[in-house]
Structure formats: structure tokens, C-alpha cells
Amino acid sequence: MIELDKVTLKYGEKEILKQVSLTVRDNTIKAILGPSGVGKSTILKLMLGLIKPNSGRVLIDGADITRMKESELYTIRRKMGMVFQGNALFDSMTISQNLGFFLRENLNLPENEVIRRVTEQIQFAGLEGYENQLPESLSGGMRKRVAIGRAMIFKPHMILFDEPTAGLDPVSSKKILSLISTLRHNNNLGAVIVTHIIEDVFNVADCVAVLYQGEIIFDDVTEKLHNAEHPFIRSILSDKILEL
């Protein structure tokens, strides 16, 4: 379980998040919906302890990570996988090297176990035949699937997705969403999906929080979003696209 407790975050003088409280339960998919630049990526980075809040607490399975040292955080982070907005694949490594990298780095597994797990992720992500390619030679959708495969590599129980469908064509984006649903059903995973695309929310999320101007203006099960009264939510429901 991930909890944000009255988290405030500033970049310089600019207050990005104002006393944001948010809970993500295990085995549920929670979407965080918000316009571009509102601080969605920032929230995910806070959840991983990549950045520290100015005030408030971030709890992972009850442990406050805001006071932890980087070395203590490493073990916590392995419970979670992260799919970065721009994938953040290592561009000088092949697909299978990208997938195997952190296994070799951080777990003392025998090499055949590493290869077994990498092959498993390659099959899961539908990347057979591309094992020895570099990320740059793959399409956007495939790269995203590599990033998802990498996020799964430690068998986490929570995955954080930063705009998993942004910039993808409709077909690839459908593929990614169905991949996320499969993950959920096969592995009992929880997930946080940050997005500015409202269809994604209705497609995969059990519940949704809407972030607007640094505050959570809605936080409930997805179906109730239709009944929300906040003018911003009304406007995105009618337009379906989030404009700033």
C-alpha cells in the first residue's frame, strides 16, 4: 500500500503539490488524472523516494520513506516497478540486456535464472525476435512494452506507470492497456497509472484521483467520476481531452 499524507512539494518558490493526501491499495489499479505539468510525474517520483517532499509523509506498506537514506530505499523500491514517461531504457544496451540489467546488478541469481526471467518477460511483452536489437530501432509501443517488462523484473507487487499511452497510436495504446489489465489479473498486481487521457481511466482503473492546481479535487471509484461536480472534471468529461 502506498500512502501520501499531506504532502507538499515546491520547486523553488513554486508550490507544485499542496497538502496532497492519497492512498493506493494493493491489488487495485488507481489512476491519477491531471493536466500536463500539474505534477503527475512528481507524485510517482515521491512514491519511489526519488525526490523528497518539503513536508508531509510518504508511506510504503506503513514505512515512512521520507526520512530514509538512499541505501535503505533501495530495498523498498524493489517492491515497486516503474515505467517512466519516456521509458528510460538504457540506449546503449540491447533489449535483453535492458531486461536483465537490474537482475544481474541487484540480485545474486545464477545466470540461467536471469536468462529464464528475461525470456519470460520477452514472451510476456511479445518481443520475441527483438532480443538483440537496441531500443532506438523499436517502435514507441514496443519500447513501452520493454519498459513494462523491465518494471516486472523483480516481480513487484505494485507498478507505477507514468503516462503509459501518451504519444502512442490508438492500436499500440490499446495493446499497452490490455497488457496492464493482463498483468493485474495474472499477477495480482496493484498499479498507479498517471495519465492525462480520460479514456485510459475508464478502460483500466478501479479508482481515480484527479489532480488539479496542486490539489486532489476528486478521489473515488471510477464510476463516480461521471457524477462529480467540479467544473474542471465536467469540462474534461465533455471534451475527453485535458487541456490546461
Partner: peptide
């Protein structure tokens, strides 16, 4: 974000 990715996966 490759450096963030390293940190995110515990390296």
C-alpha cells in the same frame, strides 16, 4: 530519466 531509472531499480 535513465539516472532516475537506475535509482528506481535499486542501483
Amino acid at each position: 530519466e535513465q539516472i532516475d531509472a537506475l535509482r528506481a531499480f535499486g542501483t
